[in-house]
Design a protein around this nucleic acid. Structure first.
Lengths: 156, 156
DNA sequence: AATAGTTGGTTGCATATACAACCATCCCCA
DNA sequence: TGGGGATGGTTGTATATGCAACCAACTATT
């Protein structure tokens, strides 16, 4: 290893992205082949929503780690597909409360076990120890990034 | 750990995605604050292109792990920014050969050291052993996925 | 040489994402 | 009570991405 390799190619950077992309693709395909009409983003949102029925859009955005504009448009798409619905709050005319629809629950109830089962394949041949180390590394990276958000490698 | 946690939340799935997103955001911000006019996708493409000048679009797409349509539009954007240019092949009227422009090289030459330096921050507190294990896990996941691309957890 | 199949690339459509700017409403405080 | 700031959401614009369908050009096979 490390013979004439560029430091960037030896780092985790390229591989994290590639793995994410591969996983996204895999999940999308798997859902489709199971007749589950969800994208990955929609699945994530439904999971959050199932635990927080009647949540405000902006809070939902926080829980799902998405910008409010992204979330607003995602909700619009999902509303058209009858996965969720918005309901104006009685006490605050600005606020939309968001609910998962029966059909959304149905898709979610199909998607979760399918994904759990896929975990067997995805993580096969990897020990618990390795998984745990990897998880730690990923979380450490996020912590490093968020801690020093304003560091700047360019000396102007 | 693992007290009443859903298997999905204990798996790597959510964290890989979150880390990728955090890294994307970090890199974009870092580039911007360094006056580097590149997105992450454009940076990746420039790196490939710097090693394969005059490559065909479709081959470039392969190297960069992107669909040819994605690549075509990415190139158009980058051409407008004078980062790359296309040149019709003499021997095959269908083919575009793609080249990095002087300005593209310039941006790349700023971006690479900036990113290398950021690696210090990103990977700080993580041992070589941990990095190596994580890399192995990520690559194993990709292998698992690609190997069994047609497996289907739904028994119809 | 004609046809059929392959390869190279673009366009139409759709999703996901985010920043900036905006409007509407609410809330607090002077 | 009224004005200024905070909060909730949408719209405009942009990037990145991929599938399906398409056209154009090359190649191989008969």
């Amino acid at each position: 290893m490390s013979k004439n390799m560029h430091p960037l190619d030896e780092s985790l950077l390229p591989w994290i992205g590639k793995t994410t992309k591969a996983l996204d693709h895999f999940i999308t395909e798997m859902f489709a082949s199971c007749g589950i009409q969800l994208t990955k983003a929609q699945f994530i949102l439904l999971r959050v929503l199932a635990k927080h029925e009647g949540i405000k859009q902006n809070d939902l955005a926080s829980f799902a780690s998405r910008e409010k504009t992204t979330l607003a448009r995602l909700l619009t798409t999902m509303e058209k597909k009858n996965l969720v619905y918005r309901k104006g709050s009685d006490t605050d005319k600005r606020t939309n409360l968001v609910f998962i629809s029966p059909q959304g629950k149905e898709e979610l109830d199909k998607a979760i076990p399918a994904l759990v089962e896929s975990l067997q394949l995805i993580q096969s041949g990897i020990t618990k120890k390795e998984l745990s180390i990897t998880l730690g590394v990923l979380q450490r990276i996020r912590k490093n990034i968020n801690a020093d958000e304003f560091s700047n490698p360019c000396k102007h």
